[in-house]
Structures are given as structure tokens and as C-alpha cells.
Amino acid sequence: MLKVGFTGALRSSVNGHAQVDAQASTIRELLSGLVQRYPDLAEHVDQGIAVALDGEIYRDDWSKPIPDGSAVFLLPRIQGG
């Protein structure tokens, strides 16, 4: 079981929850499961999303395994200079 945190505008697309429980072994599984439960999240996933696993931010590699019990945060995709 994973605790998945939501920040920023993402929170309003999951009915205002700051955190939800989820079952997933990769980032891809996590996102597709969450989009099924919260269809409003699809737009954000399409636009780009970043996933923080135990403090490290992953922007692209959705095959990344998520160890059970990880602290997971979904963040809006960010840009740099």
C-alpha cells in the first residue's frame, strides 16, 4: 500500500484530498489507477506530471518501480532555465 500525496492544482482534481491510498508497483500503474478513480486527473497527466518517490523527483521514466511503503507525491511538471 502506498500513501500518495497531492500538491498544487492537482489536489482539486482528486476531490480535494491531500493524500489517498493506492496500490501500484510502477509509476505507470500508479497513474493509470489514479486516473481511473479520478478522471479530472487525466488532463494533468496529459500535460505532464512529476512524481516524487522518497524525495527524488521523476519527470519522465514511468517504468520506475515504486517500492512498497514509499512516500509518493504527485507534483505538477516544472520548468527550468
Partner: peptide, 9 residues
């Protein structure tokens, strides 16, 4: 826990 969510290494 960072103010933007994740926990720091």
C-alpha cells in the same frame, strides 16, 4: 518534509 511535498534525502 519539503514545503512542496516530498521528503528530502
Amino acid at each position: 518534509q519539503a514545503s512542496y511535498g516530498p521528503v528530502y534525502g
